[in-house]
């Protein structure tokens, strides 16, 4: 798996894949997409990198242990359920805030988005945990 074509292609494809994964994540609230698919995209970018170079190098550019990423994602998803409690709603009820932007428009940020970001990292972390442990045999 060390063909030069594959390695060069991976080098070029890696950044766009990560950007696209973020795009898919953000698009997910109203259109097909979301945290799960986005996380898979990001995970496959790193898996590709591990295939083209080596698991050790993929770990190196990730800088974190994928298990920590999973834990962080779970924490984010869990915390996203708490805000509605302060407005006396049930756990996990969707809560939205409107952020005014300098341009005059408002940006809607909601707990479903935060939850989705948590899912993104959980999927990303779990996928890489499996891929790395399979690849390190």
């Amino acid at each position: 798996m060390t063909s030069i074509i594959f390695r060069t292609a991976t080098r070029y494809m890696f950044p766009p894949m990560l950007v696209f994964s973020a795009y898919v994540l953000l698009r997910g609230h109203h259109y097909p997409g979301g945290g799960f698919v986005g996380g898979l995209f990001a995970g496959s970018a790193f898996s590709l990198y591990a295939l083209a170079f080596s698991v050790a190098e993929a770990r190196h550019i990730l800088r974190m242990d994928p298990r920590d990423v999973t834990a962080a994602g779970l924490a984010v998803a869990l915390l996203s359920g708490l805000p509605p409690l302060f407005s006396r709603h049930a756990f996990l009820t969707g809560t939205w805030w409107a952020l005014p932007l300098p341009s005059g428009a408002t940006l809607d940020i909601g707990t479903p988005l935060i939850f989705d970001i948590g899912v993104y990292f959980v999927v990303f972390g779990v996928l890489l945990t499996f891929v790395f442990s399979l690849g390190e045999e």
Binding site: A72, A75, L78
Partner: peptide
């Protein structure tokens, strides 16, 4: 929550 904390303090 306990599991998340345990994972963070791996």
């Amino acid at each position: 929550a306990g599991a998340v904390l345990c994972m963070l303090l791996r």
